[in-house]
Each structure stands twice: as C-alpha cells, then as structure tokens.
C-alpha cells in the first residue's frame, strides 16, 4: 500500500495536530525535569541526610554540600546506645530479614491461593459470583482499624500474636482480594479458543490450567506479586500491633527509632529508609508498564 494513503487528512492538509499525547522534544524533558526534581526533592533530601553526620543533618542553614559519610549505614546495624559504650547489634539485620521473609511468604501464599480462586471465578461463574467478588473486594476496602480489634483478641487467644505464622496468615488474607481481582482480570482476557481446543483433544482441567492458562498470564503473576510486595512491605498498623520482638518488621522498628524531636538521629532514620526503599524502586522501575493495572486492582487496563 502506498504511504500517502495511510496519511490522515490532517497530515495531507499540512495542519498541525494538537493533542495531549504524541512526541515532544527535549524542551519538555527540561520542563518535566524541573518539576520532577521539585516533586522528588523530599525523597532526595532523605537520601542526602542518610550520608550526613548528625551535626550536618541539623545544620542551619541546611547543607547541600558536605563530606559524605557511611557512618549512618554502619550504625543501622550496630551502634553504641550511650557515649563510650561498646557497639551493639541493633537487630536490624533481623528486621530486614523479617520484612523480606514475611512479605515474601505471604505474597507467595496469596498468589497460590488467589490464582486458583481467580481461575475459578473467571472460568466457572455461577449465580452469586459477583456477590462473592464484591465481598472479597470489601474486605480489602475495610479500614484496618475495624478488623484489628477482633484479630488482636483472636491472636491473643490462639497464641498467634508475635509469631511468624500469625502475621503471614494475616498478610496473606490482606493480599488475597487484590490478587484475586487482578488475576481474574488477566484470566478474563485470555482467548477461550485455545482452551476449548485443548479440552476437545482430551486435556483434563488441571492440564488446561497448568499448561495453557498459567503460562499465558506470567506477566500478570509477576505484576501481582510485586504489588503485593509493595503493599505488605510498607504496612505499619497490623505490624505494630501483631508482631513481637523477634518478628518485628522494618517499619515498626523504624517508628521505634524515632522517639522525641531533638533526640532523633535523623541520619540514622534516613539510612534505614534509604536501604528500605531500594528494592521497591528497582522493582517499580522494571514493572513500570504494569503499574497502573496494579494500583487499580486490575479494573483499568492500558
């Protein structure tokens, strides 16, 4: 086909099409760069503070140019609690491990259970399907504070508070609604033809699920896992009330590092947050294209 035929009327008339989308040059980069920098500034300041000494962090006027130090990162993991005392292990290595372990396990469980459920909801819809889905969504929309009282009581009675199992089960339930909705939206999109063909050829339901459907939603699985991770990673209220000394996650430990206003070691706090932020940023960068779908429970597709 000739190229001219593909051109739109507007192009052939030589009119300039003003639309919200399209290409813009380096001028836009400069403008967006300035705006992004202003927007990013509070985060940048946290990262800068992580490399400052205590005096630099409290300097008046604020210091933009300073000699960077790694002292804060060292004292995240081991520091002396009073002047002259021997440096002690702060347990942050354990807290980081807890965060990774709890978030990882609960996301994995939620993914395993939720994907099955999503497949069920998507392929075997029955009367009341929407009601079940609605109930599932509502549990995610609940203010955490509503369920936390009975969960607190329940965990105390069952001896679950302060254990890994308790927190992991809770976070799994916390991630489930999101996983189900998101995976359902991925399963709904698959073409039924391939499945039908496989069924006609005599494949069992299980085979259809594992060999045909699951490979097609790999990207969805990855995106769901990552959003679950981000949600669980930063969760604070449940962790505050339900984790014990050994199972504490980083946000709780961070909150306990704060204390008063003047006495706060801002550099230290900044170092914790900087370390804590790295995995999330990396993962977000890789999955940027799935981001929108994730934050809206799969209801909006790009």
């Amino acid at each position: 086909m000739a190229d001219t035929e593909k051109k739109s009327l507007a192009d052939r008339l030589g009119l300039k099409v003003h639309s919200g989308v399209g290409n813009a040059g380096w001028g836009r980069t400069l403008f967006a760069g300035v705006i992004s920098f202003v927007y990013f500034f509070p985060v940048l300041w946290i990262i800068l503070t992580a490399f400052k000494t205590h005096n630099d962090a409290l300097a008046i006027p604020p210091k933009f140019i300073f000699t960077p130090t790694l002292e804060n990162f060292v004292s995240v993991f081991s520091r002396a609690y009073s002047a002259g005392a021997v440096a002690q292990d702060t347990g942050f290595a354990l807290y980081f491990f807890n965060s990774v372990f709890i978030a990882g396990t609960s996301v994995f469980l939620a993914l395993a259970i939720g994907t099955l459920a999503a497949f069920g909801f998507s392929r075997y819809p029955l009367r009341g399907n929407d009601t079940y889905l609605f109930i599932i969504l509502t549990t995610r929309m609940l203010p955490a504070i509503v369920v936390i009282i009975p969960i607190f009581l329940m965990f105390r009675v069952a001896g679950l508070s302060g254990t890994y199992i308790g927190v992991i089960l809770l976070y799994t339930a916390f991630n489930l609604p999101f996983t189900v909705w998101m995976m359902k939206s991925f399963f709904d999109e698959l073409s039924p033809d391939v499945e039908d063909a496989a069924r006609i050829d005599g494949s069992s339901d299980r085979r259809v699920f594992f060999k045909i459907c699951l490979p097609q939603v790999k990207a969805g699985l990855a995106a769901t896992a990552v959003f679950g991770l981000i949600l669980t990673w930063n969760e604070f209220l449940f962790a505050l009330l339900l984790t014990g000394v050994d199972t504490r996650t980083v946000p709780v430990a961070m909150a306990q590092t704060i204390g008063g206003d003047i006495g706060v070691r801002w550099g230290l706090l900044a170092a914790i947050e900087t370390l804590f932020l790295i995995p999330v940023i990396v993962v977000t960068f890789i999955l940027q294209n799935h981001l929108l779908r994730g934050v809206t429970f799969g209801t909006v597709k790009r």
Binding site: N23, Y39, L277, T284, F285
Partner: peptide, 23 residues
Amino acid sequence: KQFPLRRVLLILVLTPMMLSFVA
C-alpha cells in the same frame, strides 16, 4: 507526551507512593 528520559523522570515522580508511611 513522549519525550526523552520520560521513563526515568516518571519514576522520580512515582517514588513518594512507594515510601513507607513511617518515613
């Protein structure tokens, strides 16, 4: 609009959403 370095700048703007509430 598409422009050079858009992906990187977008990440900068999206970072606040990824911070923990505590921080």
